[in-house]
Simulated scan of single mutants.
Amino acid sequence: MNSSLRHFRVGYWFIGLILSLGSCISSKELVLYQKGVADKDTIVAANRYIPKIKSGDVLSVQVSSLSAEATALFNPYATIAAMGGAQQGSTTSLPYTPGYLVNEEGQIELPIIGKVMVQGLTNMQAAGQIRQKLLEYLKEPVVNVRNTNFQITVTGEVARPAMFSIPNEQITLPAALGMAGDITIYGKRTNILVIREENGQRTFNQIDLTNRDVFKSPYFYLRPNDIVYVEPGKVRVASADRTNQIIPLVLSALSIIALALSRTVLR
């Protein structure tokens, strides 16, 4: 019996030793928005991003007025949207989103009033343009314009990597990471990559979330089709490498325990 106990102890000790062979993560690497030596408790934040309409956008245009019957003529997508349009949250396959596609000339074509130039305008400015044209047909019209294809992608070391639709067209980098379930303990917070298309080119921009200067970054506010990638830290890489090395050792330790059990039974 004493021999069996020794085998058990050796086996358990061996497994525990293997599992403890891991690198540690310092708390300094996990804490966000750390204060520098000369930092104050107040920081000037980056300017809020106000999206401008561009070719390829899909716009939702909702019209209301004092006459519901007349208004219905200008809301052909209302029924489709009620049955299921763009949804907030993650998507694995993008659903069809009813709306008006901005053509290469920067125009959308609305029922009755025809083409309206919207490229380069904010949603509020586009709504004002449309409202002016509607005054000929409706009394006191109210127009709401929204970009339905404002989407971002969050990948890498986050809890729930996915593509997200942003209904209010305003999203910050920390908020996007929060939607993805936050960075895992293995994520490298000092190197968050924001991939953005600007002037027909992809730019790769590194953000350090442990530094509160992130609030001043031009990439603090995300833009449509931005990709956020959280790089895995050294611990994650080392952990993946160790897995292939540890499994045979754990099996060996279990074999020792099984051998001890078999000897005990035979006795």
Score class of each variant (00 low, 15 high):
residue 132 Q to V: 12
residue 133 K to D: 07
residue 133 K to W: 04
residue 134 L to P: 08
residue 134 L to D: 00
residue 134 L to T: 04
residue 135 L to V: 15
residue 136 E to S: 15
residue 137 Y to H: 15
residue 139 K to H: 08
residue 139 K to N: 06
residue 139 K to T: 09
residue 139 K to S: 07
residue 140 E to S: 15
residue 141 P to D: 00
residue 141 P to G: 10
residue 142 V to Y: 09
residue 142 V to G: 11
residue 143 V to Y: 01
residue 144 N to T: 14
residue 145 V to E: 04
residue 145 V to Q: 00
residue 145 V to Y: 04
residue 146 R to S: 03
residue 150 F to M: 07
residue 153 T to K: 14
residue 155 T to S: 10
residue 155 T to P: 07
residue 155 T to F: 01
residue 155 T to G: 13
residue 156 G to F: 01
residue 157 E to F: 04
residue 158 V to F: 04
residue 158 V to K: 05
residue 160 R to Y: 00
residue 160 R to V: 00
residue 162 A to F: 06
residue 163 M to K: 14
residue 164 F to S: 08
residue 165 S to T: 06
residue 165 S to L: 10
residue 166 I to C: 02
residue 166 I to S: 09
residue 166 I to M: 06
residue 168 N to L: 13
residue 168 N to R: 15
residue 169 E to F: 09
residue 170 Q to P: 10
residue 172 T to Y: 07
residue 172 T to K: 13
residue 174 P to F: 02
residue 175 A to F: 01
residue 176 A to P: 03
residue 176 A to L: 11
residue 178 G to T: 08
residue 179 M to E: 05
residue 179 M to F: 03
residue 179 M to T: 04
residue 180 A to H: 08
residue 181 G to Q: 09
residue 182 D to P: 04
residue 182 D to F: 08
residue 182 D to A: 13
residue 182 D to V: 11
residue 184 T to H: 04
residue 184 T to M: 12
residue 184 T to W: 08
residue 186 Y to E: 09
residue 186 Y to N: 12
residue 186 Y to V: 15
residue 188 K to T: 00
residue 189 R to V: 01
residue 192 I to C: 01
residue 193 L to Y: 06
residue 194 V to R: 02
residue 194 V to C: 05
residue 199 N to M: 13
residue 200 G to I: 10
residue 200 G to L: 06
residue 201 Q to F: 08
residue 202 R to Y: 10
residue 203 T to Y: 03
residue 203 T to L: 11
residue 204 F to T: 13
residue 204 F to D: 13
residue 204 F to K: 15
residue 205 N to M: 01
residue 205 N to T: 11
residue 206 Q to F: 11
residue 207 I to L: 09
residue 209 L to R: 03
residue 210 T to H: 04
residue 210 T to E: 04
residue 211 N to L: 01
residue 211 N to G: 10
residue 211 N to F: 03
residue 212 R to G: 05
residue 214 V to L: 01
residue 217 S to I: 03
residue 218 P to I: 00
residue 219 Y to I: 02
residue 219 Y to M: 05
residue 220 F to Q: 03
residue 220 F to M: 04
residue 224 P to N: 07
residue 226 D to M: 06
residue 226 D to H: 06
residue 226 D to F: 03
residue 227 I to Q: 08
residue 228 V to C: 09
residue 228 V to R: 10
residue 229 Y to C: 06
residue 230 V to S: 02
residue 232 P to C: 12
residue 234 K to V: 12
residue 235 V to E: 10
residue 236 R to K: 15
residue 238 A to C: 13
residue 239 S to D: 08
residue 240 A to S: 11
residue 240 A to E: 07
residue 242 R to A: 11
residue 245 Q to W: 08
residue 245 Q to R: 15
residue 245 Q to F: 08
residue 246 I to C: 12
residue 247 I to R: 12
residue 247 I to W: 03
residue 248 P to E: 05
residue 248 P to W: 02
residue 248 P to C: 12
residue 250 V to G: 00
residue 251 L to K: 13
